[in-house]
Amino acid sequence: MLKIERVYRHVYPTRKKAQKDIANYIEVFYNRKRIHSGIDYKTPQEVRNEYLNRQLAA
Rank of each mutant, 00 (worst) to 15 (best):
V47L: 13
G38Y: 05
K3L: 02
H36C: 04
N31S: 09
K17R: 15
P44R: 02
P13N: 11
Y25M: 07
R54A: 10
T14G: 10
D40Y: 08
H10D: 08
I26F: 03
L56S: 12
N31R: 10
Y30D: 09
K33M: 04
A58N: 11
R9C: 02
I26M: 10
N53L: 14
N31C: 02
R32M: 03
A23I: 01
N49C: 09
I35N: 02
R15I: 09
K33V: 04
E5C: 12
Y12Q: 01
R15K: 15
T43W: 02
G38I: 06
K16N: 03
K16A: 15
P13T: 13
A58K: 15
L56V: 02
Q55E: 10
F29R: 10
R9D: 02
K42F: 00
N49R: 15
P13K: 15
L52S: 00
F29E: 09
S37N: 06
P13V: 12
K20P: 00
K20L: 13
A23M: 08
I39Y: 06
P44C: 06
I35M: 05
N24K: 15
T43A: 05
S37I: 08
I4N: 14
Y25N: 09
R6K: 15
K17T: 12
E50C: 01
I35K: 15
V47Y: 02
H36Y: 12
Q19Y: 07
D40L: 08
Y51S: 04
Y25P: 03
K16S: 14
V28E: 14
V11D: 00
K17A: 12
E27N: 15
R54V: 01
H10Q: 13
G38D: 14
V7E: 08
I4S: 12
A23N: 14
D21I: 11
A57Q: 11
R32Q: 10
Q55N: 05
V11P: 00
P13Q: 08
E27F: 12
K3A: 08
T14M: 09
Y30A: 09
D40H: 09
K33G: 00
K33F: 04
P44W: 03
V7R: 01
M1A: 11
A57F: 09
Y41R: 08
I39C: 06
F29D: 10
N53F: 06
E46V: 04
Y8I: 02
K17L: 15
V7D: 08
V7N: 00
Y8V: 01
P44I: 03
A58G: 09
R54W: 04
V7H: 00
A57I: 02
L52H: 07
T43V: 04
I26C: 08
Q45L: 12
E50T: 03
Y12W: 06
P13H: 09
Y12I: 04
M1W: 10
I22C: 05
N31M: 06
Y12D: 03
P13W: 03
R15Y: 09
N53S: 13
Q19H: 11
K16D: 10
D21R: 12
L56C: 06
Y30V: 08
M1S: 15
N31P: 05
E27S: 13
N24H: 14
A18W: 02
V7K: 01
Y12S: 03
R9Q: 13
E50R: 09
P44T: 07
P44A: 01
A18G: 01
Y8N: 14
E50A: 14
F29Q: 03
V11N: 07
R48Y: 14
N53G: 00
I26N: 05
T43F: 03
